Computed example of a mutant assay.
Amino acid sequence: MSGTDEGGGPGTADAVRGWRELAGTSVLLDGFHALKHALRFGARVPVALTSDKAAALALAADLAPDVADALDALLAETDDATLRALVPRLHPTAVAALAVRPSRAANLEVLASRPRTAPVIVLDDPRNLGNAGAVIRLAAGFGATGVVTTGTLDPWHPTVVRGGAGLHFATAVERLDIAELPPGPAFALDAEGEDIRGLKLPDDAVLAFGSERSGLSPELRARAEHLVSLPMRPQVSSYNLATSVGMALFHWSSLHGPAGGLPGAQD
């Protein structure tokens, strides 16, 4: 970008101006790791800002050399005060970016496609934004087809995206009514269900999890073909939502292998 300096190098003024124009309609990528993951999975990122480009590029060289060149070309440096005015809750890495949200139609096509090679996760009326983000991060890590929420929570809320570390772009994330859920055999997690350790979850399963407060809704329970329980010590009332999803996906992957394989841990 060209333009006069606004606390950073050449192009900063245009980058800040572009941010202000796009902020209301774009996905906020909060921090280096969110931007790194979004770039790895093909997100369109029209603007990215930092108050310390050298530090951001040093992180890239150490943790994400695969996107280092893209970050070098994309990041515009501005002063800390300007950045904090644009992103009040600035990430400790002092990096923020705006991305284009994936097409809803494209996500719905992915969710509805058959045969699937990995489950779809359904969060039934979740309430905690951080939990929803953690689930999306898990789903991306296991190669799940997508994450669907019912109810009022927006799965693309900035706090959810922050909790998901930018991995919304690695899986299909949408909000749907229960009647609109993707096809496939539905397995709903419930304390009264069959022990998951005795089941083989199919690749095209729809794995449904109730809300942190009230569990499965009657509508979702009616949609489910199978009720499944996780092993739990007596007198322990429940697991955290993201923990439950992680346990179920691990059980699935241990029997089938995750979509695309797991080449190994990566920051």
Rank of each mutant, 00 (worst) to 15 (best):
A208K: 00
R213H: 13
P155N: 08
A140L: 05
L227F: 05
R137G: 06
Q235I: 09
A224C: 05
F169S: 08
A224L: 04
E219I: 02
D154M: 04
L153R: 00
R175A: 15
L123N: 01
V160G: 04
P119L: 07
I178G: 01
G184M: 09
P182I: 10
P119V: 11
S238W: 07
E192R: 15
S211P: 05
G184D: 06
G141C: 15
L207I: 14
S214N: 14
T117R: 15
E212R: 02
V160P: 04
V120Q: 00
G215A: 06
V173C: 04
G151F: 02
R223A: 13
F209E: 01
G143V: 06
S217C: 09
H168L: 12
L129A: 11
P119Q: 11
D190G: 10
G164F: 08
L201F: 03
P115T: 14
A170Y: 07
T171Y: 05
S217F: 01
E219P: 02
R175F: 04
D177E: 15
G163W: 04
F169K: 10
T117C: 10
I178H: 03
V120F: 02
P218S: 09
R114M: 14
L220C: 06
G210Q: 07
P231K: 03
L181A: 05
R221L: 11
V206C: 08
G215Q: 06
E212M: 05
L123M: 08
